[in-house]
């Protein structure tokens, strides 16, 4: 199949960036990233600079890949990362627009590569359970209801790719933040420092400059792991509880 790719090229963070058009020959068994590999090999053969993009595991779990394809993070298919998207979902002759995440808190590094360290800092602000190695009691000492463990897992399945913020019309990172807060807060082990964690993580999220959730639901549609927006509601409730239901802070 013959495709025209309209790809965002930006030399570095100071460059303004622009779209460039490329012709590429693909076949339907390729993944989207393999199609990008073909394009890059073509560019290298012409001694041109290849398109920088992030990718690693290519099986949908590391969270590295991040392309906005025709306006949708990770492309048109729900529950799919860019690396899992295959060319059979496109037609011969299609023009495909490829852009980086456009979120102020994720500045562009080069072409399609952005800096997502804001997510690391949100986790560092409290996205953990404070337990040192060796302190743990027996793993079966605290029974956890099967469904509750499942609910925590559903939140914990987040791969930290940033599609939620990229998809959100407000560039909000609340799906990411709430997923970690709930993963830990739902479990008895994490419940102990839940209030402190909610406050710290929300504060850090705000400091990073993400937008505010207006409940459009775009995040849950474009989340490759289909994490539910109900996580944001649960975070909101926990946050209100942590402010008004606690005697800490003055």
């Amino acid at each position: 199949m013959d495709l025209i790719l309209k790809v965002w090229r930006q030399k570095n963070n100071k460059d303004n960036g622009r779209f460039e058009n490329y012709k590429v020959k693909a076949n339907e068994h390729m993944s989207f990233l393999e199609m990008m590999d073909v394009l890059n090999e073509d560019l290298l053969a012409k001694k041109e600079e290849p398109i920088a993009f992030e990718h690693d595991c290519r099986e949908g779990i590391c969270g590295s890949c991040n392309m906005v394809i025709d306006g949708r993070p990770h492309g048109p298919n729900n529950g799919t990362t860019t690396c899992q998207l295959h060319m059979r979902f496109f037609k011969d002759g299609d023009t495909i627009t490829v852009e980086p995440w456009r979120v102020k808190a994720f500045p562009v590094i080069k072409d399609l590569v952005v800096d997502r360290s804001a997510f690391d800092r949100i986790i560092q602000s409290g996205g953990y359970i404070s337990v040192n190695t060796g302190q743990a009691q027996d793993a079966n000492a605290i029974p956890i209801e099967k469904d509750l463990a499942g609910q925590a897992f559903d939140a914990a399945t987040c791969i930290g790719c940033g599609a939620c913020a990229a998809a959100c019309p407000n560039a909000s990172a609340m799906l990411f933040t709430s997923a970690k807060i709930n993963h830990l807060g739902l479990l008895p082990q994490g419940e102990v420092e839940h209030s402190k964690r909610v406050q710290a993580m929300v504060t850090q999220m705000d400091e990073e400059g993400f937008g505010m959730c207006s409940n459009t639901g775009a995040c849950e549609v474009d989340c490759p792991k289909e994490i539910s927006i109900s996580n944001i509601a649960l975070m909101n409730r926990s946050y209100v509880g942590s402010v008004f239901g606690s005697d800490k802070g003055s």
Binding site: K6, D70, G71, R72, T97, A167, P169, G217, A218
Partner: peptide, 8 residues
């Protein structure tokens, strides 16, 4: 450049 369709 392309407006998302169908996600909200």
């Amino acid at each position: 450049a392309v407006k998302a369709k169908g996600n909200a």
